[in-house]
């Protein structure tokens, strides 16, 4: 009994000088970014990329300087000279929106980077450690999660006279890390009990390698999703605070444009060219970021993608995916007797 199987099980071993080439860097990068490769993510990334380009090339793209007043052309609806019309001072709305992109992108990403770094450190450490250290980090996270963020930011922001963008980003980041930390902690805790982590521990891998090289790569999708979500929240927070007027910014962002529009009664006077574009831009970036997150979601949880497809395929064949009984059809081929 034993000898037959033994020879069967041993596959032909190929050794020798013709070893296969190493996987190329490109292929490795490709698999690292696999979570971005579906249609939703790509669409989102394209839109986001567009805004980033606009922010970077603002000076080149804007037809006028945003502060250039023209008293002869006030409150003008869109025209050939001013594609998005003018403000109460005759400033070009399009230029203001273009220049406003920069503040939004910079603060959004900066705040998200800060928040994500904190979230990774707190979340992964809290998930890996056990006992009171983990519990107290978790309690800290929950405190930040429960304490309402916006009122806190409002009060803190009102304490400064003319805060620089970096400071605003820091405040937004410091109030927004808790959600990501919580999610990362839960996932790290579940990863920690996986056999490959135990194997690494049993092999004597140092702690920093276990966290950095064994766990972190498997957390990448979550970290990406958390980052994207934080960018959204930061941008919404920034524009909201600017609109309220709590942040007196001297650089433009879409929120301040809306602030002026509101103060000048644009909403009541139906000057839609003034208040629609900034809001639509915020929504567009929000949609782009959401799409990216949808893509990541589907990569992490393939059920979300395949569930709809499976149901549609069944419907095409006249079946309802929720039917409890599947119709049995007899076949006429003779070979199905197994």
């Amino acid at each position: 009994m034993t000898t037959d199987l033994r020879t069967e099980q041993a596959p032909q071993v190929r050794t020798g000088p013709t070893a296969p080439p190493r996987v190329t860097v490109r292929a490795r990068l490709g698999s690292a970014f696999a979570m971005f490769r579906n249609r939703k993510s790509i669409t989102g990334l394209v839109i986001l990329g567009f805004f980033v380009l606009v922010a970077a090339l603002a000076d080149v793209l804007a037809p006028y300087s945003p502060t250039q007043v023209d008293h002869t052309a006030r409150f003008e609806p869109p025209s050939a000279e001013h594609w998005l019309g003018t403000t109460h001072l005759g400033e070009d709305v399009l230029s203001q929106v273009i220049h406003g992109t920069r503040g939004v992108i910079v603060v959004g990403f900066l705040a998200a980077i800060m928040a994500t770094i904190i979230a990774i450190v707190v979340g992964v450490v809290a998930g890996y450690l056990r006992g009171w250290r983990s519990e107290s980090l978790s309690a800290l996270t929950n405190v930040f999660l429960v304490i309402p963020g916006l009122p806190l930011i409002i009060i803190v922001a009102s304490m400064f006279e003319n805060p620089p963008l970096v400071l605003i980003a820091a405040v937004l980041g410091l109030t927004g890390w808790a959600w990501g930390a919580r999610v990362l902690r839960a996932q790290t805790m579940s990863l920690r009990n996986r056999d490959f982590v135990q194997a690494a521990r049993a092999n004597g891998e140092p702690l920093w390698r276990i966290i950095g090289h064994e766990m972190l790569p498997n957390l990448m999708a979550l970290i990406a999703a958390s980052f994207v979500g934080t960018v959204t929240a930061a941008i919404l927070g920034l524009t909201t605070l600017s609109y309220i007027g709590v942040i007196p910014v001297n650089t433009y962002n879409w929120g301040t444009i809306l602030n002026w529009a509101g103060a000048q009664g644009a909403f009541r006077q139906n000057q839609w060219w003034w208040f629609l574009p900034p809001g639509l831009c915020i929504a567009a970036i929000g949609v782009a970021l959401s799409l990216i997150n949808f893509g990541i979601d589907e990569y992490v949880n393939p059920r979300l993608r395949s569930a709809g497809e499976r149901a549609r395929a069944m419907r095409k064949r006249g079946l309802d995916v929720n039917d409890p009984v599947t119709a049995v059809r007899t076949t006429t081929s003779a070979g199905d007797d197994a």
Partner: peptide
Amino acid sequence: STIPYFWLGLL
């Protein structure tokens, strides 16, 4: 839901 609250309200 990605549209900022305040803008939706103003609209």
